[in-house]
Amino acid sequence: MSIQAVEDTKVKAFPAKPAEIVAFTAKARPRIDLVAIAGKVASTLVPPAIVIALLLVVWQVACSSPTASLPPPSQVWNEAYDLIAHPFFDNGPQDIGLAWRVLISLQRVAIGFGMAAVVGVALGALVGQSVWAMRGLDPVFQILRTVPPLAWLPLSLAAFRDSNPSALFVIFITSIWPVIINTAVGVRNIPQDYRNVARILRLNQLEFFVKIMVPAAAPYIFTGLRIGIGLSWLAIVAAEMLTGGVGIGFFIWDAWNSSRLPDIIVALAYIGVTGFCLDRLVAAVGAFVTRGTTAK
């Protein structure tokens, strides 16, 4: 009897305890997730933050002596504070925020790179598809692609007699080569089976290009586009330094001429971040467009 009674109490006691535990875990669950998310964010953000902080400290120490030729970060912060804090100010034609300048440069890149993408994919498809086109054009491409971007500038200035189209041409000619070459490789690697399917269906050249060639070569095409947009961003800054205008490249040249070194350093940061974003943008578009193409 007494044993039974003890068991009864135990049995009664048990349900109460798990209920508490359940309530506890339910409360704890979101906390654990938050901690996990915070941990993930921290693990990606903390190491670069530490490295950047260390670099700033080293830079500050190295440039603090009165004889240093370059400004330390503290001086950059003080003297170029307007540029850092207000990217979108607009005080007239030549006095605008750096974000505006970056946008103007990006506009040039968008036009030049857009043309390079269209022409590059078309030429790459031709070279990849036709043996004769490859034999004829490939040596020319291989030589021209090694010409540095700025070497084209005098010639394009002479041809277009205006700085803006010349800058566009430099972007175009710089970024087209990786697009052509990667597209050609992608087209050459289209499996024979896909070609046989197209032949049995009697797809014409245009249908084959749109429905088989471009999607099958898309992973290669996007590799080329990604390299191309990186190169075009390199080229625009250099081209603008020489052609003038209101782009970010010309801003650096202008700042150098008026000895505003802190402004140059801020502009470099803008250029780096923008280039990084461009690269990630093309990579993300590529990942979205080519989903499923690489899987067998």
Binding site: Y194, N196, R199, I200, R202, K211, P215, T290, A295
Partner: peptide, 28 residues
């Protein structure tokens, strides 16, 4: 020359991986 009146089923299926099942047949 090849044509759709002599349709081939290939050993390795040869479906286009970027199209769905429906789209693959719709292409034909």
């Amino acid at each position: 020359s090849p044509g759709p009146e002599r349709a081939v089923v290939f050993q390795n299926h040869s479906l286009l991986p970027w199209l769905t099942v429906y789209e693959n047949i719709n292409l034909a």
